[in-house]
Design a binder for these strands. Structure first.
Lengths: 242, 242
DNA sequence: CGTCAGATTGATATTCATCAAGATCGGTGG
DNA sequence: CCACCGATCTTGATGAATATCAATCTGACG
């Protein structure tokens, strides 16, 4: 009842019904467990993985390093996310996945994932779905980084994480755990550390969110999402036949 | 020999071998043709399409409109791209697809696409692959918008489009056709029109690229891609078994 | 010839980055 | 227990990148 696939199954079940056979098929997947310290790389750019990595605990980020050394984090992964399911098809990693906090992860051989896709059309579509939700999140980030001012960028990210964590049962009512540094936050949002710091202060002064240490408090989610124009459609957090 | 699926097949064949049966299976797909004027919407936000739209000619953009009216174009589609293959799984469109130029497009029923996936594991993976390449492009845009200065953003986009157009046979040696307005370009790059204009002038003065009317000249691709840190890995323009 | 969308340019304002200096805080060794 | 250390956070001062506003210019086209 508490195998490595619980949060992943929960993630899928936010989007569609699973039969017990389907759950069993997922649970039959072999999983090679590993742990990572903060800053370690789960998957390395330009490598050719033959496993995909399912995050079980902790936070990971997909980081892109530009030639001049600047870093952009293109996505944040939370427990229940495959961080590199796309590598099964892309073959070569176009970015690195780094542990933003201590992490546990399950590495699943691509050949076994392919077997699942071959045996169940429906699970195949659901795996596809998860990569396509990743892309929808990417688009939301493009809009945020391209067109929102700093404060709204921070707020939008927090709203997104709050709902995603809620979906896998990892949020408290008005609070979430997100133990990352302001400098990492800056690299997610395309901002400088200093500016992130000032944006956090503004949000705190407006009582929209209070970021203290590892915890974020959201006194009024509706107020925050309203203030930063957050629309949850893109997260696809509704069940329907896919 | 010149059905609607030629450029799509060519797009796939940049990434993997197709058997003649696979080509035939694709060509057996029904295609409902439509034409669009510049500015018309091919697919509308919040709709629930039961077709996916394959672009045959012209350029389209996936646009996200924020509440305050600001627009971000999250992706550019060229002939041979499915603009909303993901809608088959996401069900509800999280953005609008708009014609950046006059376009022709083929609408393919989802049920037929599902039939293809059911009949050919390999084609199923290749359709999946195309959505996953979309996501890789999104990540490159996130890095560009988040961490590159204006001139490099323009240059990076041009490099990307040049290679993508080349892949479907739509580029001349040192030139490409990209008939979009500077204001649309601004919405792709997260910049203002004025700043785009000035960045184009800089690039012209450095002789890195000359954008005149609808045509872009690239005197020296290596120089341009060097100057803006362009790395083509993410486009997956190499054939291998997937 | 007039019109209109788009391109270009200048002037100015705003946002954000950079640099530099404390302040805070959790750990760690003496 | 305390002094110190490194990492992170915070704040101020300044500068660079980019946005905004307002003209003018250009070129296509009826």
């Amino acid at each position: 009842m508490s195998g490595p696939y619980q949060s992943f199954i929960r993630n899928l079940e936010q989007r569609d019904e699973l039969t017990s056979q389907e759950r069993a098929l997922i649970e039959s997947l072999p999983a090679n467990m590993r742990s990572f310290e903060r800053g370690e790389e789960l998957v390395v750019e330009n490598s050719r993985p033959n496993h995909s990595c399912l995050l079980l605990s902790g936070f990971a980020g997909r980081e892109i390093i530009l030639r001049d050394g600047k870093r952009q984090i293109a996505a944040v992964n939370i427990p229940g996310d495959f961080v590199d399911l796309h590598a099964m098809l892309l073959k070569v990693m176009d970015h690195t996945v780094v542990a933003l906090t201590p992490c546990r992860a399950a590495f699943v051989p691509h050949e076994d994932l392919r077997r699942v896709v071959a045996e169940s059309l429906h699970l195949g579509r659901l795996l596809w779905l998860m990569t396509v939700i990743d892309a929808a999140i990417h688009r939301a980030w493009i809009a945020s980084i391209g067109r929102r001012h700093a404060g709204a960028r921070v707020g939008h990210l927090v709203c997104e994480l709050f709902l995603r964590l809620q979906a896998v049962g990892l949020s408290e009512p008005n609070r979430l755990d997100f133990p990352v540094t302001q400098s990492e936050l800056a690299d997610m949002l395309g901002l400088s550390v200093v500016h992130v710091n000032r944006s956090l202060r503004e949000l705190r002064e407006k009582n929209l969110l209070v970021w203290r240490g590892n915890k974020i408090e959201i006194p009024d989610f509706a107020a925050l999402s309203g203030a930063c124009g957050f629309e949850p459609t893109y997260l696809n957090l509704h069940k329907e036949p896919r």
